[in-house]
Design a binder for these strands. Structure first.
Length: 432
RNA sequence: GUGGUUGUAGCUCAAUCGGUUAGAGCGCCGGACUGUGGCUCCGGAGGUUGCGGGUUCGAUCCCCGUCAGCCACCCCA
């Protein structure tokens, strides 16, 4: 029998599960602080829902099949088409802007690598029905707080910020053909990872004039709005196109998050449905894949749901973030499975052990006891292995006096407690 | 999908030039400790050396294939 999961799929042993739960809980709390409401959709959707947005080529990266009713279906590779459908179906009845988030498992049939599996969890946050730069800033702020919540700082994670409107303006100013624009985007995507002369050669091959090449490579190196118009006749036009982005950045500065932001026009973010602001979160050392990414996609709800609403959103995955947290030693300690271990001295004490344990469980304590008669020493050893803070030891003498021995396993102390006082004593001891 | 690289116990690793019954630590199970834990000591289980084939008297070791992990490319919604 196979003992390994399928390639790109993970087993979550209790330690792994606790780590995952910690990520989800931190995400959920943070989204709620921003007033976002949680939703979910079906993990299995009509294939068409995904090909409408991304074209037929995407099928190569989908877990798709024909179901027993003859329907072409696919496991969701992303959440956006589902949200678009859900929002569109009830758009008329919902107060705008809509703030929604989901934490859901997604599936992509791709060759796995570090930071990229065939199954992963992803938080999606979308803000629908608002076009202004403050909406973009709101989402970027949320994405920052989503990683801050784990103890990561602006020295660990950087936000790269760009805007399709600004890129488009730069292309228009230079009169680039569609093919040339594609070439520039490809060069931008690899900018900083390949030598400058390789980039240069690529752009020459695409037939760009040397003046255009200089201007576009200069833009690729811009890291601040002040640099945007430096030494170029395009200055006024570029700065005008950059206006929404400037406003979004200023909003983030007002929130005290300006430290996290780098202007970086080379972020490409795959396919072309982004219409405005785009951003990505990366580890500061750039050794991992992108942690999160998103932007404004004002035409997408019309295309997918038939309702014309502006929207922006982003996703953050559990895989790369998890790797970064492990790298930084920010994994939380898994919670102890047991708070109170109840031990009996003799087999005759077992009924009292069971009664006590169950009473404590009903009172909400996490309680365990030995499932067969064993020496007290053994039972305490088990209590220790289960990381119990407290032990309750019950023997014939204790029963005769209506007492139990309450033992604090952390502080190595012990005292006799009347049975009636036990719950109060446990609560008090756990608070120390 | 393409190329490179690595696979030995649950985990981390060892095994001389191709040589006898593949070892160690940690972990796990049991015992020494019959009213009190973490320590110590003793014992035990656990391996088709990823899998299949080839070369050889003999393969963990060399060769081929395959599967899986990792890395790069492609892609990245």
């Amino acid at each position: 029998m196979a003992t390994q999961p399928l390639p790109g799929f993970r087993d979550f042993y209790p330690t792994d599960f606790a780590f995952r739960a910690h990520i989800f809980e931190t995400w959920r709390r943070t989204c709620q602080r921003y007033g976002f409401e949680e939703y979910d959709g079906p993990p299995l959707e009509p294939l068409e829902l995904f090909t409408t947005k991304s074209g037929d080529e995407i099928v190569g990266q989908l877990y798709n099949f024909t179901d027993k009713g003859g329907r072409e279906v696919a496991l969701r590779p992303e959440m956006t088409p589902t949200v678009a459908r859900m929002v569109a179906a009830r758009a008329g009845g919902m107060k705008k802007p809509i703030r929604w988030f989901s934490i859901a498992q997604h599936f992509r049939y791709e060759r796995q690598q570090r930071g990229r599996l065939r199954e992963f969890y992803q938080l999606n946050a979308d803000l629908i029905g608002e076009t202004g730069p403050l909406a973009d800033a709101e989402l970027i702020a949320l994405s920052i707080d989503l990683v801050r919540g784990f103890g990561l700082g602006s020295g660990d994670v950087r936000v790269r910020l760009s805007d399709r409107r600004l890129i488009r303006r730069a292309f228009e100013l230079r009169g680039l053909t569609e093919a040339q624009q594609q070439a520039v985007m490809q060069v931008y995507d690899k900018f900083g990872r390949v030598p400058q002369d390789v980039s240069l050669l690529k752009l020459q091959e695409a037939g760009l004039a040397s003046g255009d090449i200089d201007a576009l490579l200069r833009l690729a190196g811009v890291r601040d709005f002040a640099q945007l118009g430096e030494g170029t006749p395009d200055a006024a036009s570029l700065l005008e196109a950059a206006q929404p982005l400037v406003e979004a950045r200023n909003a983030l500065v007002s929130m005290g998050l300006g430290e996290w932001i780098d202007l970086d026009l080379t972020i490409v973010r795959g396919l072309a449905y982004y219409t405005g602001t785009v951003f990505e979160l990366f580890d500061a050392g750039r050794t991992l894949r992108a942690i999160a990414g998103g932007g404004r996609y004002d035409g997408l709800l019309q295309q997918l749901g038939g309702v014309d609403l502006p929207a922006a959103g982003f996703a953050i995955g559990d895989v790369v973030l998890g790797e970064l947290l492990r790298e930084r030693g920010l994994e939380p300690e898994a919670p102890a499975p047991v708070q109170v271990f109840v031990a009996g001295v003799t087999p005759e004490d077992t009924p009292e052990v069971l009664a006590t344990a169950h009473r404590l469980r009903e009172a909400g304590f996490r309680v365990e006891y030995a499932l067969r008669p064993e020496a007290v020493g053994k039972q305490l050893k088990l209590a220790d292995a289960r990381r119990a803070s407290l032990a309750v030891v019950i023997g014939p003498d204790d029963r005769a006096r209506g007492e139990v021995q309450l033992k604090d396993l952390r502080h190595k102390t012990q005292l006799a407690v009347a049975v009636a006082e036990l719950q109060a004593a446990l609560t008090a001891a756990l608070a120390t």
